[in-house]
């Protein structure tokens, strides 16, 4: 319990940092700290596989990309911007409602907690085997649907990049480079270190 309290404090402070820090890179770092604390929480719950994947995917890959974009564009604190009137208060209200809803579910909902023995039996020591059985067994359809969803996102991103590339250069690129390559070549040009010669 003491471990959880410490981790919870770290996570809440980190999450507040994401929202409140002015420098975008600091905010992103704060998010990395939050994600790591969440991974440690998974470890304390014996969900080792989930913890490792959390670190590899979120902290190791997604946040690195976030920071990459922040640094590449050199995003600075632009100060107050034009926005919809009352947006700030709407955001506050939404935060309060969400927090209340979570608190109600967490503290006042009368459902009994599942038996720890059954939970740990199904977790199978938190390793990949148990999760694999669940994902490729009873949740197979949902798993495949999520795969299709991700593929849709990737195709959408490629389509967006292609259109930008065409309009930026005035003439459509023949042959249709794969998206990854376009992005990589774009990165090379932005860095000014290689690029097509």
């Amino acid at each position: 319990m003491a471990t959880f309290v410490v981790l919870a404090v770290v996570m809440v402070v980190g999450a507040l940092g994401v929202v409140l820090l002015k420098q975008p890179v600091h905010a992103a770092l704060s998010l990395v700290g939050t994600l790591l604390a969440l991974a440690v929480t998974y470890v304390t719950l014996e969900a080792h596989f989930l913890a490792a994947v959390q670190v590899i995917v979120y902290a190791g890959a997604i946040m690195v990309l976030f920071l990459f974009v922040l640094m590449l564009l050199n995003v600075q604190d632009a100060g107050p911007r034009r926005s919809l009137p009352g947006l700030r208060w709407a955001a506050y209200a939404a935060a309060v409602v969400t927090a209340t809803a979570i608190a109600v579910v967490a503290f006042w909902d009368g459902r009994p907690a599942p038996d720890p023995a059954i939970v740990s039996l199904h977790l199978q020591g938190g390793s990949a085997g148990g999760i694999g059985d669940a994902l490729f067994g009873e949740l197979l359809l949902a798993f495949h649907l999520v795969g299709v969803l991700l593929l849709t996102g990737v195709i959408g991103a490629v389509a967006l990049v292609q259109r930008r590339a065409e309009s930026a250069h005035g003439a459509p690129k023949g042959g249709g480079l794969p998206g990854g390559r376009t992005a990589a070549a774009g990165g090379a040009r932005a860095l000014g270190s290689g690029g097509p010669r």
């Binding site: 890179v25 790591l36 490792a52 590899i56 190791g60 690195v64 920071l67 990459f68 640094m71 390793s127």
Partner: peptide, 25 residues
């Protein structure tokens, strides 16, 4: 001796990039 030792090594090394990345920035 971790059941997910392989993933652990990958996770720890993938966090190492932050040092280089942030140092340069």
């Amino acid at each position: 001796d971790l059941d997910i030792g392989l993933l652990y090594v990958l996770a720890a090394t993938s966090m190492g990039v932050y040092g280089i990345f942030l140092g340069g920035w």
